[in-house]
Design a protein around this nucleic acid. Structure first.
Lengths: 341, 341
DNA sequence: GTGAAAGCGCTAACAC
DNA sequence: GTGTTAGCGCTTTCAC
């Protein structure tokens, strides 16, 4: 069923039908009604490709993320999709699996007009952003894992401050030697969290110790190895600040293996959005990001960008607040635990 | 940059260039080489809409899921996307948010040729599948939450057997009064799990008690209310079989609130793919589905269906095995715990 | 081996 | 208020 058949059924011209369907003011309301009714009856739907081709836009956006089997990106996607659905946009999803080459080829794929805009979070292995700088005309929004030097809207949480808060919380609960574990050397988000960590050490007059900054960029077993080595050192840390949930899980596993007690022997804090953290043994102190809201916000800004590329106001970064939720994994002996700091 | 500009640059006709780019045997290898080189140089990419319009297919599939903030659908998506990427397909993602009306309008949206096929898992509130039965010509694959009576390929785990195993495991560990909690009255997956539960009761000569079959179809707080009421009964159950993770979490929360000990007072088993279940307090006995593989399988079958609609062999259902992983939440006093049943 | 031309289904400028 | 028509960029049949 296409326009021409529909027009024939109605004894109207194709263009009149087309206009009627799009509620053009050129068409009398009587014919509009007629056309709408017939279209419904015959279950007519516009052909998106013909329409996209003609209009040179697609009503489709791309979402490019490192992975989705994860408690952060899940709600982000949910937030984005809600906004897109409401705006009548379609969402194409692409996973980089943390691989820069995949990221590059996905971005290449998106340069032919298939989408009107892109929302993305960088892969942990992306060392070089030439592929993104080439996206000159394409509306682009970064969220969470951003490329700082690319001048597009960015939706993040305050990672420096979160890093600071987390570290300060460990120190306040008695930690003297705190390890920082991150999943990438490249991501600005990791650098910022680390800078917050370093700043908190400095403020508390604790000397930085490079051997306590542990890159965990491998698979789960490799990361566990790194953590095992760390916790077997004579001079092992008494606090661990993990930048992602899977590293906290690995830490719990190694502590069990080495018979180290959390929080007595080691305290643990971690970025996480998992629902189960409060039920862990012991319950895990977390910094929780407003994932759903980040998704909503990123999509909202992207649509503004698509609809009005020239609004310089849009280029301002959006920084949302994360929450530190203190639980048992960082509890000190002397001090009663607070619930939300 | 389009075909006609590229052709001009090369002093060739549009059609020759088009053929050369698609490696047609009509074109000499010399010109092919030339064309390819120039296309690369000028970064030519085919316009997908023109191409789709002309070829009447889209190289795009739709994924329709209830939600994504969840440890099951995350890996499923990951599996699907891997296969799609490899086959050069694009994936549109749509969330029904468990709402039948949304599901219906999404499915309507997909009937205009935008996608070549659909993979879907039903919303919990879908009571009626007319919208899906209308998809006559559209390749369709169900996974996990399937509509039994619609004759398309289905990828599931053995839900009856899983329900049986879970219940039998509770009984073997000493439970006499087992509650079954599910998220929907409509989903066949819930019915099958329940039938497995009932069969295990029967086999063990335990009488069915309808007041122990608890629909948990509300939000988290409503579900907690139902569970609270259940566990406050004089004659409270000594075992709980939850069909999704969030219900087990709710159960843990209520047990803590009511000072009931797991597994001493109540044993808990649950379907879950979360990474954290082993670290819960106590560690949670789960039935774990092969989520990533289900995604891969569903996508693989959908592509076969798209490429060859007439292969009756494809209509066979695929049933993958779930694993029962026994942990502390179902441990009996007398009996040493097994690890994988 | 190469090119001309029709047409996928739609939109929008223009004519009446 | 309605109709005619020229493309959007591509693929493919057919002619040479």
């Amino acid at each position: 069923m296409n326009l021409s058949q529909l027009a024939k059924e109605l004894n109207l011209s194709i263009s009149s039908v087309s206009k009627a369907l799009r509620d053009s003011h050129e068409i009398s309301s009587a014919t509009k009604k007629m056309v709408m009714a017939k279209a419904k009856e015959l279950n007519y739907q516009v052909n998106p490709f013909a329409s996209n081709l003609r209009k040179q836009k697609s009503k489709t956006i791309a979402l490019v993320v490192p992975e989705v089997a994860n408690d952060f990106f899940g709600p982000v996607i949910s937030g984005m999709e809600s906004v897109a659905q409401q705006k009548g946009y379609h969402v194409l999803i692409y996973l980089t699996h943390e691989d820069m080459q995949k990221e590059i080829s996905i971005i290449k794929l998106l340069q032919n007009g298939r989408v009107d805009g892109i929302m993305m979070s960088l892969s942990a292995q992306t060392t070089n952003t030439g592929h993104l700088e080439e996206l000159k005309e394409m509306p682009l929004v970064f969220f969470d894992r951003v490329a700082d030097h690319i001048d597009v809207p960015k939706i993040t949480t305050d990672d420096f401050n979160s890093g600071f808060m987390a570290t300060d919380h460990l120190i306040k609960n008695g930690c003297k030697r705190i390890a920082f574990m991150c999943i990438s050397q490249n991501l600005s988000i990791c650098k910022k969290r680390m800078n917050g960590y370093l700043e908190a050490l400095k403020k508390n007059k604790i000397e930085r110790e490079n051997s306590l900054i542990i890159p965990c960029i491998g698979d789960h077993e490799e990361n566990k190895d790194s953590i095992r080595k760390l916790l077997k050192r004579k001079n092992r840390p008494d606090g661990i600040f993990a930048s992602v949930e899977k590293l906290a899980i690995a830490t719990y596993e190694i502590c069990e293996e080495l018979k180290l007690k959390i929080p007595q022997d080691v305290k643990v804090i971690c970025f996480s959005n998992a629902q189960t953290v409060a039920l862990l043994n012991p319950s895990l102190t977390t910094i929780t990001q407003p994932a759903y809201e980040m998704g909503e916000k990123a999509a909202t800004i992207l649509f503004k960008l698509i609809e009005n590329k020239r609004d310089p106001f849009l280029l301002e970064n959006t920084i949302l607040d994360s929450k530190l939720i203190a639980r048992d994994s960082t509890k000190s002996k002397r001090k009663k635990n607070q619930n939300v700091l």
